[in-house]
Computed example of a mutant assay.
Amino acid sequence: MTEANKGYFTEENSADVVISRIAETTDPRLAEVVGAITRHLHAAVKEIEPTQEEWLAAIKFLTETGHKSDDWRQECILLSDILGVSMLVDAINNRKPSGASESTVLGPFHVPDVPELPMGSNICLDGKGHPMQIKGRILNTEGQPLSNVKIDVWQTNDDGFYDVQQKGIQPDFNLRGVFRTGDDGTYMFWGAKPRFYPIPDDGPVGKLLGSLGRHPYRPAHLHYILEAEGYETLITHIFDPDDEYIHSDAVFGVKESLLAKFDLIEDPDRIAKEHPEGPFYEVEHDFVLAPAS
């Protein structure tokens, strides 16, 4: 038995002593994870040198974060989001080959079993907001169009709310839709120009953001899930590069490759041909799927 195994705990060897208590019968991956967390946690405590009062405040914060979580609200994930950990885990688990579209976080507002719609449909069921045409192509890394790609999309309304946040105000499945590409790999549908919105900031994570001088807003975006046989599923967004929060997303979800220009179309000929009701926004963005590994 080593000296560390005997449990002689000191400030200098604290992490080694704790890690040495992990039994040899422990699942190897669990032992690796707990060992790494212990080393980094002890290193952080030694760097910070918290007072007893500060340590208790941290315990209280974590307790309140757990108490705030329920079947609908996951405050612990929100904490992971605002610290950039959610995006880091997403990046590690979604490394793409050169040329493939990048992923970003799913978010809490995806709804399963959304009705499939004909290509070109309007997912804005209440007719509110600025009309927007969204189009592009789905390709593989060789530049070839992909057919029968399932495109699951959802977005906020002009007020910055998803339909599930406004039951009885927005129609069910408002600003949501599922489409499938044809042989040419193109897609097109109509929606409404989305708006920036805050993540939930009425709990301990929101208070932490305020204490750090940070805002709770996410820039305007559209969500996508792209699925095709033989290819990796892509969970991603496209963002409005002119949004005031584009450089300070509260959850660090913005990637440069996911910026898509939101152009206001005022040309009378295009309006007459495509949207007789008046000017509309146009967003064009192609996606490239990576082959399944």
Rank of each mutant, 00 (worst) to 15 (best):
R73P: 02
R137I: 03
K6P: 09
L208G: 00
D70C: 10
L226D: 03
L117K: 06
V283K: 00
A57E: 15
E32P: 02
D202C: 05
G191D: 12
T233H: 04
T38C: 15
T186H: 09
E277T: 05
I22F: 15
G182K: 13
T65H: 01
K193G: 02
N148T: 00
P171T: 07
E32Y: 10
L83S: 04
T181E: 09
D183A: 14
A100Q: 00
D184F: 06
M1S: 14
D249T: 00
H221M: 08
V114W: 10
V33M: 11
R137W: 06
I169Q: 12
P291I: 04
E75V: 04
Q155R: 06
E53T: 10
E256S: 01
P198R: 09
S257E: 00
F173H: 14
K255H: 01
D242R: 08
K6M: 15
A36V: 13
A4L: 15
V105W: 03
D183S: 13
G160H: 11
P200V: 09
G7T: 14
I235T: 05
L41I: 06
D184K: 05
L117M: 11
G99C: 06
D70S: 11
E47Y: 11
I77R: 11
P268Q: 03
P115A: 09
G203A: 08
R214D: 07
I134Y: 01
A290C: 03
E227T: 15
G127F: 13
D163Y: 09
M87L: 07
F9Y: 12
L117H: 00
E256R: 02
G129A: 04
Q52K: 13
K46M: 14
T38Q: 12
V45L: 14
E229S: 07
E47H: 14
R73K: 13
D201H: 11
Y231K: 00
T181R: 02
Q165T: 13
F179K: 01
E3R: 09
H247G: 07
I238T: 00
S248C: 09
